[in-house]
Computed example of a mutant assay.
Amino acid sequence: MCLRVVIVDDHVRFREQATLLLELERFSVVGGAGSGHDGVELSRRLSPDLVLLDVGLPDGSGFDLVPAMHETGAAVVLTSSRSVSDYGQRVAQSGAEGFIAKEELTGEAILSLLA
Rank of each mutant, 00 (worst) to 15 (best):
P48H: 02
A74H: 10
L111K: 15
E23H: 10
E97G: 14
V77Y: 00
G60M: 11
V91R: 13
D59C: 12
H37W: 08
V84A: 15
D64E: 15
T72K: 06
A75R: 15
G62S: 06
C2L: 09
T106I: 13
R15P: 00
G88P: 09
A115M: 13
G107N: 12
G62E: 06
L111D: 09
Y87P: 09
I100W: 02
D54Y: 11
A68E: 15
L78M: 07
K102S: 08
I100H: 02
V29T: 07
A18G: 04
L105I: 07
F27W: 12
L52P: 04
H11C: 00
Q89M: 13
V84E: 15
E71H: 04
R45D: 07
M1A: 12
A68C: 05
L113R: 13
V30L: 09
V6L: 01
Q89E: 15
L105P: 04
L50P: 01
A18T: 02
R13K: 08
T19M: 10
R15E: 01
D10T: 00
T72C: 08
F63Y: 07
A33W: 03
S94E: 08
L105G: 07
S112V: 03
E16K: 08
T106N: 12
L53V: 05
R44V: 05
D86E: 15
S94F: 08
R82E: 14
A96V: 05
E41N: 01
S43L: 05
L22H: 02
L65C: 06
S35R: 12
V5I: 02
V6T: 04
V77G: 00
V29I: 09
R4E: 01
S47I: 00
A101V: 05
T106G: 12
T72L: 07
V6K: 01
V30R: 06
A33F: 04
S83P: 06
V51F: 03
E108F: 14
L21P: 09
S47T: 06
A109S: 14
E23A: 09
D86Y: 14
L114W: 05
S43D: 03
E71C: 00
P67M: 13
Y87S: 11
P67K: 13
A115W: 09
V29P: 08
T106H: 13
D54L: 10
L114E: 07
R82V: 07
G31H: 01
L53D: 04
S80C: 05
